[in-house]
Design a binder for these strands. Structure first.
Length: 228
DNA sequence: GTCCAGGGCCTAC
DNA sequence: GTAGGCCATGGA
């Protein structure tokens, strides 16, 4: 049986192993928001290419983006998959930001948190993960981001074997760690940093500081045939 | 050639 | 409420 860990211990191990991450990988709140939409179901390196294309076209902010039509944006963000849909999602958000806040992100983030979150969730193309990423990383709001990496890691560590939806996962985690924006920020960053390189379907467990706690690893070690 | 990435929407049960 | 199809590039 694997040893059991608390969530704060998981964070502590990851941070000691990887160092503080200083996330999100974006220069400005505008770029964080654009990146949050573009990274939906795609690796970040593809997003970097799309951001380069946008920069080459003179687009750095959401206000810049607002001046372009969907048809002009789509080819610039081709590397991020589903580019037609994502071009529309970006325009949906710039419309929202222009009409409600005249492109003033500070004003937007001054809204009451749960009100803003539910308003953003009404926008077509922004689901809970994208909205929470924007709130936490662009707005410094105390919202824990759940993504596929988080679920994969915590499931493999044996925290739960129940199937949970997004809000159930969010509740599960926030009940077990202090409510702290810097912690929310860095914990999620630590998980992504770990999982994007070594916690995949074919795990390279030799570099993982959590291997001895990983039910998935231990099971495959006992029965390698089941690892595929 | 195959597999699958830091989702979310829509439709059908 | 949830399972499954769809969107449709690029790197390993």
């Amino acid at each position: 049986m694997p040893k059991t860990l608390s969530l704060p211990q998981v964070y502590s191990i990851l941070r000691n192993h990887q160092g503080p991450q200083h996330w999100w990988p974006g220069e400005t709140p505008d770029e964080i928001i654009i990146g949050a939409i573009l990274t939906q179901n795609v690796a970040w390196k593809n997003v970097v290419k799309a951001l380069d294309n946008l920069h080459s076209a003179g687009i750095y902010t959401l206000k810049d983006l607002d001046a372009f039509q969907v048809e002009a944006i789509a080819p610039l963000i081709r590397p991020t998959l589903y580019y037609n849909q994502k071009a529309m999602k970006l325009k949906t958000f710039t419309n929202f930001l222009r009409e409600r806040y005249q492109f003033n992100l500070h004003r937007m983030f001054s809204e009451e948190l749960q009100t803003l979150r539910s308003e953003m969730l009404k926008l077509k193309g922004l689901g809970p993960e994208t909205v929470d990423s924007i709130l936490l990383y662009a707005g410094s709001k105390p919202v824990f981001v759940i993504d596929a990496y988080t679920i994969r890691l915590l499931t493999r560590l044996g925290f739960t074997d129940k199937k949970m939806n997004y809000s159930q996962w969010q509740k599960f985690i926030t009940e077990r760690i202090p409510q702290d924006i810097a912690l929310y920020n860095d914990f999620h960053a630590q998980i992504v940093c770990l999982c994007k390189d070594i916690c995949r379907n074919k795990p390279r467990c030799e570099n993982c500081p959590l291997t001895s706690y990983c039910t998935y690893y231990l099971k495959n070690k006992e029965n390698p045939v089941a690892s595929s």
